[in-house]
Design a protein around this nucleic acid. Structure first.
Length: 207
DNA sequence: TATGCGATATTCT
DNA sequence: GAATATCGCATAG
């Protein structure tokens, strides 16, 4: 029997012009879209099922205190990768939002694995499908993300890009964000309702 | 399902 | 020195 990881999905790159203006709008738009990681001759494809918006002026966002060497990618305009390292061991992958010169980003928090599942299993050291990319740290490991991908244009052919949806997206829910201590009440987290690959407590992902 | 803890490195105070 | 957009393992309910 053919393994799921060998199915080729017909996903095409999202164009920058097609990305909505506004950080929250982009975060919502990206739920159901795909992310494609080319590594060597193989590729990994995941369906984005959970995101968080960190809009301009939000004190929980990394761009809040202005542009620095480390958060530069958040200011490139929309559709670029912003990769950072936290908790001493985890990389996080964001998509920059807003116009060039304005710092904002969308954190990709969870994927539904579609293609390259064997590669993800190897990297994650587990064969538990729902755990491969559920949570931002796991997602980065599964996609082989590190600081070398910081600043990559996600709208051109290359090591990492955003793709069209592989299937219809049903209901998109909204909640507070996870793991932050400032601006905790803003409803800036988006997810596909009922999708088992969404991270966080179930109580946050009902609607 | 919830809560607690330790691991670990970069950034900011 | 403290905090951190987390994870995996432990234990309890």
């Amino acid at each position: 029997m053919q393994s799921v990881s060998h199915v080729a999905y017909d996903v095409r790159r999202l164009s920058r012009a097609g990305l909505p203006l506004g950080t929250a709008e982009l975060a919502r738009y990206l739920v159901g879209k795909t992310i494609v990681r080319n590594v060597g001759r193989s590729r990994i494809v995941g369906r984005i099922v959970e995101t968080e918006a960190y809009p301009p002026g939000d004190s929980s966002g990394h761009a809040y205190r202005g542009e620095t060497a480390s958060n530069h990618s958040l200011f490139l305009g929309r559709g670029f990768a912003y990769v950072y390292f936290t908790y001493g061991m985890h990389y996080m992958l964001n998509v920059s939002a807003e116009e060039p010169g304005v710092g904002a980003g969308v954190l990709l928090r969870a994927l539904e694995p579609l293609e390259g599942i064997k590669l993800m299993e190897r990297r994650r050291r587990t064969e538990e499908l729902v755990d491969l990319a559920r949570g931002p740290g796991r997602l980065a490991v599964a996609l082989q993300i590190d600081q070398r991908l910081d600043g990559v244009d996600l709208c051109v052919d290359g090591p990492l890009w955003l793709g069209t949806e592989a299937r219809k997206t049903l209901h998109i829910g909204r909640s507070v964000r996870i793991g932050i201590t400032r601006e905790v009440d803003r409803l800036m987290r988006f997810f596909e309702v009922g999708n088992p690959f969404v991270s966080g407590p179930k109580s946050l992902s009902m609607k």
